[in-house]
Design a protein around this nucleic acid. Sequence first.
DNA 1: AGATGAGCCTGAAGGC
DNA 2: TGCCTTCAGGCTCATC
Length: 278
Amino acid sequence: MPELPEVEVTCQALKAVLEGFSITEIQLNRPDLRYPLPPNLENEICLYSIQSVQRRAKYLLIDFEHGKTLIWHLGMSGRVIVETPEIPFLKASPHDHVIFRTSNNHKITYRDPRRFGFIQLTPTSQLASVNPFNTLGPEPLNNPELNVLIFHNRMKKHTKPIKNALLDQKIIAGIGNIYASEALWQARISPLRAANSLTQPESALLLKELQDVLKRAIAAGGSTLRDYVRPNGEVGYFQYIFKVYDRENKLCEHCEVTNLSKIIQCGRATYYCKICQK
DNA sequence: AGATGAGCCTGAAGGC
DNA sequence: TGCCTTCAGGCTCATC
């Protein structure tokens, strides 16, 4: 799925067409995604002005004027497609589960073949206290409350491998399987080391490379593997500059002598260079 | 505290 | 061509 960069790209596109406008109509093509859709969703949110569209970790948050927030997670295969009235381009699919129409005549389609995504509604005032927002770690980007010392101290509390710690949304939010491998390779740190073995300079480097890879991925429109496309229907381009992800047995571009390895950590594929990642 | 496996689903890719 | 198996960007739960 969509990791942080893909959700961020989706968020920016939704922001442009939703903020200051409202949803006028919702077409629900099934009663549930991963969880049941909120009851009376149309009555709950239609015609109320949308104050903001934000991203927290891998969640989209849509705040309405009457104090409700729509929580939207894209799961593994979810994608959001925004169509302008002038240029409809989307060919309908049986996996188009929810379709929103907006007061500025846009059509927003939620397509999710695997249906691991979900949509929930909560009072905005309670958002910070509901699962998972009450336990989420800090945002890695544009977050004045995150610095090297805080990141280092959070990693220091865990004996599990660094790769698993990066995927743990309670330690740091938004990192998924692709960008965890990419950032560790950039920082030349082994995914197998215990999180609490990082020195402070290593933590500083890892945080810098995490932020770098996330920013570059956002700028590239995210990564398109199987399902994700940008809301305008274009694919993202970051997959063309993966340095380690899905590159088993390809040459490491750091040392230029070793082929990259693939191992399984906690049931997830990790790609890394055995030689230059220490 | 951490690891592992199962489960939620479908579709793509690879092997035969 | 077609059938079968494996694997996939996330997250949660139970169990060890």
